[in-house]
Amino acid sequence: MLTIKNLKAKVEDKLILNGINLQVNAGEIHAIMGPNGSGKSTLASVLAGREDYEVTEGEVQFLGKNLLELDPDVRACEGIFLAFQYPVEIPGVSTVNFMKTALNKIREYRGQPSLDAVAFLQLMKEKMKLVEIDQSLLSRSLNEGFSGGEKKRNEIFQMAMLEPKLSILDETDSGLDIDALRIVANGVNKLRSKNNATIVVTHYQRLLEHIVPDFVHVLYKGKIVKSGGKELALELEAKGYDWIKNEMELV
């Protein structure tokens, strides 16, 4: 589904990604872990098409297309979804109107007819239940005045609505208490299928107790330095990131 080859990216002359290689297939969950500043969030942003980052080398194939050539909205239409670490507050834009516009644009791109108001509300109700989000949140302006947990839940709700092929969860667990973490993880697990894939970017192992990954990759100084199964996350938790750092320094 997704193939990343030797991806390098910089922001303001500072190289953040230094040759990433990654293969993600349908049905898989990949976890990307790493210490602060290792480039985890940058990777997520580059895949979603944030313009602050300049890709200097490498390529990214997504379902046979050169992802790097596409505008952010086209990537979304192709099926990429980024759950933001810090979802932006947009005063005056209602969540419902926003979601309806997005969904119908994506449907249009896929050659599906637009949903009318009734069908849309029906779908919304269904997905709201799935991620245990309250109607009152959605009648407000997009993310405005939401707590950290509410913002993250809203991200998962949007993911449920848009049914992406590849979801990238950027530190979705940060700032969540245990209950919110469980709800978010449940949402992700329910949406999982053999046709879609998920990349979970996280600093801690605890999210991975709820969303069990097939592969764990450790990012350090802009490179994937270790890959393994879910047990790698536990090993990391036990030994700490210093273990990776020391190992890398030895090499």
């Binding site: 979802p87 947009i90 644009k105 791109y109």
Partner: peptide, 13 residues
Amino acid sequence: EALFYLRSRGIPL
């Protein structure tokens, strides 16, 4: 930021 957020959900520029 807001523009990018909207676009990342599939809404054209």
